[in-house]
């Protein structure tokens, strides 16, 4: 079916400024010089105000930009930190103590660098789920963790510098009970 976009205007019935302002004054009437001047002055003032607002906003944006300039690099760096953490976690049975010590030292160094940048890890485990700092990936029952709290952390989040750089990815407890199969499927298919 063909539909004219114009038909949408019937939805607009009753709105006072629904159509362009062509009806203002008949074309024969010449506006007085005073009126023209007032109009021009109004235009000028509005433009000047808009410019001033733009200037203020640009200043604000520059501050914000400076603050956030390192975000991309830090986010990429966090991936390396994650992998160092994983390396240490999976190396509990590693017999090469030298390698393990070295790895631990490198991880500690990373921690120092992140700390210097004002970043700190978000404590998620066993805490009430907070959407401002965490992202829920799924729910599952837990005998140890209260309903609505985090029973597993899939990815550590980081905050600092006045905002959350990366939210934690967590599993939220539904309290004690049998695993819910439906919920598990939720992980991959939920928009």
């Amino acid at each position: 079916m063909a539909r004219r976009d114009g038909t949408t205007e019937d939805v607009n019935e009753g709105s006072p400024n629904g159509s362009p302002t062509q009806s203002e004054g008949s074309p024969d009437e010449q506006p007085s010089p005073e009126a023209l001047l007032a109009e021009e002055r109004d235009r000028y003032l509005r433009l000047a105000a808009e410019f001033d607002n733009l200037r203020k906003r640009t200043e604000r944006e520059m501050t914000e930009f400076k603050r956030r300039a390192a975000d991309d690099v830090l986010l990429a760096l966090l991936e390396v930190v994650d992998n160092l953490d994983r390396a240490l976690e999976t190396s509990v049975n590693c017999t090469d103590q030298d390698l393990l010590d070295g790895l631990t030292a490198v991880r500690a160094q990373m921690g120092t660098i992140l700390g210097r940048e004002g970043l700190e890890p978000i404590d998620a485990l066993d805490r009430p789920f907070d959407p401002y700092e965490m992202e829920a990936v799924m729910r599952m029952p837990s005998d140890d963790v209260a309903e609505g709290s985090v029973c597993r952390e899939l990815l550590r989040g980081y905050r600092g510098r006045g905002y959350v750089l990366r939210p934690s990815k967590v599993i939220v407890s539904t309290g004690p009970g049998e695993p819910d199969v439906d919920d598990v499927e939720d992980v991959t298919e939920r928009k």
Partner: peptide, 25 residues
């Protein structure tokens, strides 16, 4: 559950943990 309303990214983040009280699409 406390009765707060969340909109946008924050609401999306908690959708999985709170499906009954989250509306998308």
């Amino acid at each position: 559950k406390e009765g707060d309303r969340l909109v946008g990214q924050v609401a999306k983040r908690q959708a999985v943990s709170n499906p009954e009280r989250t509306i998308g699409s």
